[in-house]
């Protein structure tokens, strides 16, 4: 009886091999997961190619559309408009069908005009195929 108890208490020393056979599978699965799951960061933007150059003293042609921005809102050819109406007016000009030199839209702004409004004007101009020309203050 005593002998049997002693035998039961003795621990069996097993060989503790870590199974490494599936490591390669895990690693490749990780690689495939990241390859599939990752997306390249793509920011959303509006393209505006502003013409560089010196300020011209020449009077601006009456036909060139002018957008005036102020803290109060947007004016298109001296008429108050909102963003939607501005889009409509610019779409009516059919700028994409005109040659590049006639696609210019003058963008004038008062002091304190927020970038948000500028951005809306940029968006409207570039989505309708216009080229932005910034007007400098005197």
């Amino acid at each position: 009886m005593f002998k049997k108890r002693k035998q039961g208490r003795t621990k069996k020393h097993r060989k503790g091999d870590i199974p490494t056979g599936s490591f390669s599978d895990i690693a490749f699965l990780l690689i495939i997961y990241f390859l599939v799951a990752t997306t390249l960061v793509k920011v959303k933007s509006i393209t505006a190619d502003l013409p560089a150059g010196e300020k011209s003293n020449q009077t601006q042609s009456e036909k060139t559309p002018v957008i005036r921005l102020s803290t109060n809102g947007i004016r298109f050819n001296d008429k108050d408009v909102d963003v939607e109406l501005l889009n409509e007016r610019l779409a009516a000009l059919e700028l994409l069908e005109k040659e590049e030199s006639k696609r210019t839209i003058m963008l004038e702004s008062e002091k304190g005009t927020p970038y948000d409004l500028y951005f809306q004007a940029f968006a409207a101009i570039s989505s309708n195929g216009g080229l932005v020309a910034l007007v400098e203050e005197e």
Binding site: K42, V43, K44, S45, I46, Y115, D116, F119, Q120, A123
Partner: peptide, 9 residues
């Protein structure tokens, strides 16, 4: 700023 016209760059 926000706009309806923005597109993926």
């Amino acid at each position: 700023p926000e706009s309806e016209k923005v597109e993926k760059m």
